[in-house]
């Protein structure tokens, strides 16, 4: 997030946008280090014997010894952490206990599938929500605004698993049977080979994100439209199109970027539920499975990947906000 308050704004902080980005990257790295400590502590450094917890009823002395060796459980906790974190830095996230192959190889296809789902949902929901929000503000209290406000409020209140299941009942199973209820991606296949199967999962994610962003966009746009400079622009006799495009929209986008970033990051979590409902072969299913199977290397890698996505999206949002808000740029 931006440091809107606090921190000296004097010469010490000068350095322009480049220094700002560098600083934010360093902060992001620090966050990742802290997250890695928490993830490690929560998965591997628990009290008790993780090996026994993982193997459960099947544990034999030989398999316990094997697993302790694989997890380096015989060494001090600090050393275990450093080995693991060092591996991550080299792109080595260890070997999945369940799949018996490197975590990176096991997850690569799934990460591509999930990234595609997120990207597609983002590409649809972001412009859509900006347009809806902007027009709702522009046509404030007119039917379009009233209807979209109501719909977005209802959708924002519904968790995505409810939305997803309702869509399935409506379009795939009970009411109409026009779309596939699940997406079955054959091994080696890709989600984009099955555009029909993508419709419901993407629609669910779009419906999960659009309401929030549209409502923030509307609020932000309403504020901007009431501002002095828009009034001024109108009084100058600028055409309304120009007023909106040049003056209102860019200023309304600043706060919206932050919300978009939070929502996209939220999608990375929400996608787990959506993948679950639609049987989508992505990281969601992998994470759920890994937790169930005590597949610690996979859980650790996915937790780090999702944390990384949060950091990157927030960084992009901050940069985006700075770029569209000259007022903030001068403070750097």
């Amino acid at each position: 997030m931006l440091e809107r308050s606090g921190g000296p704004t004097g010469p010490a902080r000068r350095g322009g946008i480049r220094m700002f980005i560098l600083r934010r990257i360093l902060q992001g790295l620090l966050v990742l280090v802290l997250v890695s400590i928490v993830v490690f502590a929560a998965t591997q450094a628990l009290p008790g014997d993780p090996a026994r917890a993982i193997l459960g009823r099947t544990a034999t002395p030989a398999s316990l010894a094997n697993l302790r060796e694989q997890l380096h459980l015989n060494r001090p906790v600090i050393e275990q952490y450093l080995t693991w974190a060092g591996g991550l830095l080299h792109g080595d996230a260890g070997t999945s206990f369940s799949a018996q192959e490197p975590v990176t190889k096991y997850l690569s296809d799934r990460i591509v599938n999930t990234a595609f789902l997120l990207l597609l949902s983002g590409l649809i929901s972001i412009p859509l929500s900006i347009v809806i929000g902007a027009y709702a503000a522009l046509w404030r209290d007119r039917p379009f605004d009233v209807i979209t406000s109501l719909i977005t409020l209802v959708l924002a209140a519904l968790p995505e698993f409810v939305v997803g299941l309702v869509l399935v009942v409506l379009f795939a199973t009970t009411v109409f049977q026009i779309l596939p209820a699940v997406i079955v991606i054959p091994p080696g296949g890709r989600p984009w080979d099955q555009p029909l199967g993508l419709i419901l999962p993407v629609l669910t994610l779009v419906l999960a994100v659009t309401p929030y962003v549209a409502r923030i966009m509307r609020a932000s746009m309403v504020e901007v439209l009431e501002s002095d400079y828009v009034e001024m622009a109108r009084l100058k006799g600028l055409p309304e199109r120009l007023v909106l495009r040049r003056h209102a929209l860019p200023n309304a986008l600043g706060p919206t970027f932050q919300v978009i970033a939070i929502n996209l990051a939220y999608l990375a979590g929400g996608v787990i539920v959506v993948e679950y409902i639609f049987n989508f072969a992505g990281i969601g299913g992998a994470l759920r499975n890994a937790v169930q199977d005590h597949d610690i290397p996979v859980v650790q890698a996915l937790a780090m990947a999702i944390a990384g996505l949060y950091v990157v999206l927030n960084l992009l949002a901050d940069i985006g906000t700075i770029v569209v808000t000259p007022r903030l740029r001068t403070r750097l």
Binding site: A172, Q177, L179, V182, V184, I277, G285
Partner: peptide, 18 residues
């Protein structure tokens, strides 16, 4: 033979003929 992570998805796939 198709793996389903969740029984709801499995039932839905049967209902929709997949």
């Amino acid at each position: 033979i198709i793996d389903f992570p969740d029984v709801t998805a499995q039932v839905n796939a049967l209902l929709s003929g997949q």
